[in-house]
């Protein structure tokens, strides 16, 4: 299984906001691992989906030149369980963006309607790690936005007709 927790973007406004979709399928192994015979999507993975949506939004704002790392989960409040067959919409909005990082607030809803039932409210902070943690050394190459990621991004662009 690949560590990709969003299926596609349906909206992308550079430096401002993005909406990504995740279809939850019973074929996915993780659904069977948390509680036997009670498949639900773990909250941690819902946070990961938001982190990927928001992380790409933050990365794009600097043309994927920064190593964007999830630094802090400021808030994660969950309102309902997510079951197989459901579609999640991750809505992320950049609150602040600077040379050193970004803060993002997000809402996860069931379905694509903007007033769909709220699954979770999540606030995240990202760090551009080369601009922080003075003195620490990180690899030269961008291990966050890898080649695999770049290739996926091409297909996102083509499929969604999004100009990034």
């Amino acid at each position: 299984m690949r560590w990709i927790w969003i299926d596609k973007f349906v909206e992308f406004v550079p430096k401002q906001s993005a909406v990504a979709v995740k279809n939850v399928s019973l074929a996915e192994e993780y659904l069977h691992d948390l509680y036997p015979a009670f498949p639900i999507m773990p909250h941690t993975l819902i946070i990961e989906g938001m982190a990927q949506t928001a992380g790409i939004l933050v990365g794009e704002a600097r043309n994927f030149s920064e190593k964007v790392i999830l630094a802090k989960i400021g808030k994660a409040v969950f309102h309902r369980l997510v079951r197989p067959g459901e579609t999640l919409a991750y809505r992320a909005r950049i609150d602040q963006l600077s040379e050193t990082g970004a803060s993002v607030s997000g809402t996860v809803r069931l379905g694509l309607q903007s007033d769909g039932p709220v699954v979770a409210e999540i606030e995240l902070m990202f760090s551009h790690i080369d601009k922080n943690l003075a003195g620490a050394q990180f690899p030269e190459h961008n291990f966050v936005f890898t080649r695999q990621f770049t290739e996926l991004l091409q297909s996102y662009r083509a499929a969604a007709n999004i100009t990034l």
């Binding site: 630094a71 400021g74 602040q96 600077s98 040379e99 803060s103 902070m125 922080n132 943690l133």
Partner: peptide, 28 residues
Amino acid sequence: ESIDFLDIVFRLEKAFTTDPAKPFKIPR
């Protein structure tokens, strides 16, 4: 911890911005 300082800067900027047209900024 080190990462908290970036968080604090963001939150201070937000808390002390009264006019969105003139955001309160804390230079790095």
